[in-house]
Design a protein around this nucleic acid. Structure first.
Ligand SMILES: [Zn+2]
Ligand SMILES: [Zn+2]
Ligand SMILES: [Zn+2]
Ligand SMILES: [Zn+2]
Lengths: 143, 143
DNA sequence: TTCACACCTTGAAGCTACTATAGGGTCAAG
DNA sequence: CTTGACCCTATAGTAGCTTCAAGGTGTGAA
């Protein structure tokens, strides 16, 4: 199978497949005489695994961690479980952050109910007078 | 005031201030003979406004929108209100996405309660057998 | 005077996970 | 023999910075 078909199986573009190869998530493919990449079902499985992890918003590093752990099929899966737990914590942390943000934004929105002149808009006043806090390190890779 | 002090007022680094200037969020500063940037209280206000917007996870484009609207102080503030409403919608959309993600991850996590061999871990099985869905366009600039 | 040291300058590269573009090569069908 | 679908590489762009490299400036102390 060539790259177009593989990409279809993984619900992604051919560029993305090449990108994964470059980044080492997918192994370098064998080539035909015409220098076309050729793949088999193992590649399909691996690509689908990667895409499923991406659908869950894992980073490449997290995915690489899982793929590495899978290389020792007989070893204990505690690392896998731990990695997933950490990622769930990333999602939780971001949800918490966004909930706080939403409260702040709702409070700001209340400061202007009806349209008025820009220089009297309570929202802009609020944005100007907020206390500027130092940007804290992100708790999560989820933007 | 020089760039170091301004950066401190805005709770950011000097590089960030230069970056904002390059991107047009801050106007180009006047210079001393030694080519040092010099700022006054108007710059402090504008930088703090920008940093407060960033603390609310607005994009540079959204911030630029607000700054542009502020240039006509006598005009109607409907644009400001609308811009904030849109951003609140961005936050809401991302919270909804992450909640769905969290449910999916929780379901996956249940598939392996105790440690076992990697090749029998229910989490990895789940990740391998999920239906790979095409990546849908992001509803929100919040990752 | 000369040194150290804090502050400032520019430009380029790195980060994530792709996406898009340019400019070409391969291959089967009509 | 040309068209069109497919493939290749390399480069640049996206957001919002951070980090690095290599230097200029200004002040206080030895
Ligand atoms: Zn994670
Ligand atoms: Zn208003
Ligand atoms: Zn927004
Ligand atoms: Zn397990």
């Amino acid at each position: 199978m060539r790259i177009g078909e593989l990409a279809q199986m993984g619900q992604c573009t051919e560029q993305t497949v090449r990108y994964y190869e470059k980044k080492g998530l997918l192994p370098a493919a064998a080539r035909t005489e015409a220098n076309y990449r050729i793949y088999d079902s193992a590649h399909v499985e691996r690509l689908r695994f990667i895409r499923n992890c991406r659908a869950l918003d894992m980073t490449h590093e997290e995915i690489r961690g899982l793929l590495d752990l899978m290389e020792q099929p007989a070893s204990d899966c505690g690392g896998v479980n731990g990695l997933l737990d950490e990622h769930i914590a990333h999602v939780d942390a971001r949800i918490t952050e966004l909930a706080a943000l939403k409260r702040q934004l709702a409070g700001l929105r209340e400061r202007c109910q009806s349209n008025q002149a820009v220089n009297e808009c309570g929202i802009l006043e609020g944005l100007a007078s907020m206390e500027t806090e130092p940007r804290r390190a992100p708790q999560s890779h989820l933007g």
